[in-house]
Amino acid sequence: MTLLQLSLRSVVRGKRMVFVALLPLLVGLVAVLLAVNAGDTDRTDPYGVLAGELLLPLVLALVALILGVNAFGDERDERTLGLLLATTLSRPRIVLTKYAAAAAVTWLACLPATLGCLVLATKTELPFGEAAVSLLVASLLAALAYSALFVLLSLVLRRAVLVGLAYLVLWEGLLAELAVAFRNLSVGAYAARVVGAPFDDVPFNASDGSVVTAVVLLVVVAVVGVAASAWRLPRAHL
């Protein structure tokens, strides 16, 4: 048993994994059904809506929330943090490993939905290779950014699940829908911008600016979030 194995075991156990696995599976199924029932007409819109507006900012964000918040939330609730910290493991390494486990499982759990969306993408006029790379990269970056945010949140607040949910629904959901200014402060919108890379004109809500900007900002969110968590862990009064 290593720290990484412990972290992975900790992430994938329990009833919440059922929800975490079923939700993307359902989305994947819907995507495949849409693809099967599609005629020869342009189906760009369903792909964009599903991948850019449902999969990343909602489904993957929820999965990241549940797994990210519990990376340290479980340690706190089960009072094992004292044991984990009573080791010579460096605190940044503990944070990085737990974060990596949460982000990786988030991305993998969402893979059925991601692949389902790619099946749907074959029914569009988009170049498939480009669409596939965009979506896979976007989902990976979104998993990294969201997980970093939610791991940090759980080290700062006790009610991290509720606050995280409120953030997703109100900030990323509502405000980003309402005003472009807010959209440029939303992880989901930047992830959507990456999904929208192959489109000439992105047919769903996404951030302004270039794809490169979006990629850089998602990476920055992930790095800053993890760094802040590493700083925070020894100071968190859990």
């Binding site: 412990l6 900790s10 089960e78 009072r79 094992t80 004292g82 044991l83 009573a86 010579t88």
Partner: peptide, 16 residues
């Protein structure tokens, strides 16, 4: 912690 053994407060252990 290489030379220190700690039994923290409570009864925490990883259940799995």
């Amino acid at each position: 912690h290489a030379r220190l053994g700690l039994v923290p407060d409570g009864d925490g252990l990883w259940p799995f």
